[in-house]
């Protein structure tokens, strides 16, 4: 009802802001703020433009910075959709009430744990936390992330405490095991001479070069680094024992801005990204996990449901201030 009143007042929206009518409106272009890298996502957008005949204006940036920008734009945001690298940035917009609720038909095949509260956003791809290691250098492989602070791994492990993916893991660690446990583990890692890197990719490169034996990263970085270097690299990945907190699954996801006047076209784009052909392409091209059933896991990796990822409210990953304070306290930031 409220939407109808607004639509009636706004001349642009008149007659076109009704999400129940799908076919009669003629949308010519959509604006997307994309926190996903152009290199990886642009081919998908190009395919959709061809299929739908709708032109996409794509603004690339860092997920968190784009979220800050949308928060700042508020009701004046030109964006129709926000595609984010991580659930945290979507959570921030959702809490600010800037994302509209998606109908149940959107992402109906996606498990509820990969969908935001109030259906404000849906996951597009899955990204698993794993450990990367140099084959032969680590035997036996660790079964739990907790082991990495023990003496046998002294000086051999790489982490990236300033990186958002590591912080999301620590946030999950705090929420699952409590702050005391998290602090003890982090302090243990520090005392164990864990090597500090800025990015996941640097950790993988360091393993390849032999600087460290093992590191905590997102699963797809071994491919990303290998492709960036244009050669095979000397690093592999593995999960901890199912159920271990080290096996966190985060998602990249997408939401529609509450101010968008082109909701049904935007929904079509989300459906395109979460439909089987795109999901298969994500697995093959960017080596991420598909979030729908019936699509294979990335080559050589266990299926999403077999990882035994801890259940974490992904929307909560927005709350990283406490995590950062803790990292600062133990001296890792």
């Amino acid at each position: 009802m409220g939407a109808l009143v607004i639509a009636g007042v706004s001349w642009i929206g008149f007659g076109s802001d009704n999400s129940s009518q799908n076919s009669s409106e003629k949308v010519e272009e959509l604006t997307i703020y994309s926190g996903r890298s152009e290199e990886f996502i642009a081919p998908f957008f190009a395919r959709w433009e061809k299929e739908s005949g709708i032109k996409l204006n794509i603004r690339y940036g860092d997920s968190a910075e784009l979220a800050a920008q949308i928060l700042e734009e508020g009701k004046n945001s030109p964006a129709d959709l926000f595609l984010s690298q991580d659930a945290g940035s979507l959570g921030a917009l959702s809490i600010a009430g800037l994302l509209s609720q998606l109908p149940d038909s959107v992402g109906s095949e996606i498990e509820s744990q990969y969908i935001g509260e109030n259906r404000a956003w849906v996951g597009v791809t899955g990204r698993a936390r794993v450990f990367a290691y140099r084959p032969g250098a680590v035997d036996p492989l660790p079964t739990s992330v907790a082991e990495l602070s023990s003496a046998q791994f002294k000086g051999r492990v790489g982490i990236a405490p300033s990186n958002s993916s590591f912080q999301a893991f620590v946030t999950a660690l705090i929420s699952k095991k409590g702050e005391k446990f998290a602090e003890k583990w982090l302090a243990g890692m520090k005392a164990n001479d864990a090597k500090i890197y800025l990015k996941n990719s640097e950790i993988v490169e360091a393993i390849d070069k032999g600087e460290i034996d093992l590191g905590l990263v997102n699963h797809y970085y071994v491919w990303e680094v290998s492709e960036a270097l244009g050669r095979e690299i000397n690093a592999e990945i593995s999960f901890f024992t199912p159920g271990d907190i080290g096996n966190l699954i985060n998602v990249s996801g997408v939401g529609i801005l509450g101010t968008s006047k082109k909701e049904s076209a935007a929904i079509e784009l989300i459906n395109f990204l979460t439909a089987k052909p795109s999901q298969i392409a994500f697995v093959e091209d960017t080596h991420e996990y598909s979030l729908i059933s019936g699509v294979k896991a990335p080559e050589g990796l266990s299926k999403l449901e077999d990882i035994g990822a801890p259940e974490v409210d992904l929307g909560d990953l927005e709350k990283v201030q406490r995590t950062q304070d803790l990292l600062t306290k133990v001296g890792l930031l």
């Binding site: 700042e72 921030a92 201030q321």
Partner: peptide
């Protein structure tokens, strides 16, 4: 930058 990025606390 960290405050913007990590806690969205403008």
């Amino acid at each position: 930058q960290n405050l913007y990025k990590s806690s969205y606390d403008r």
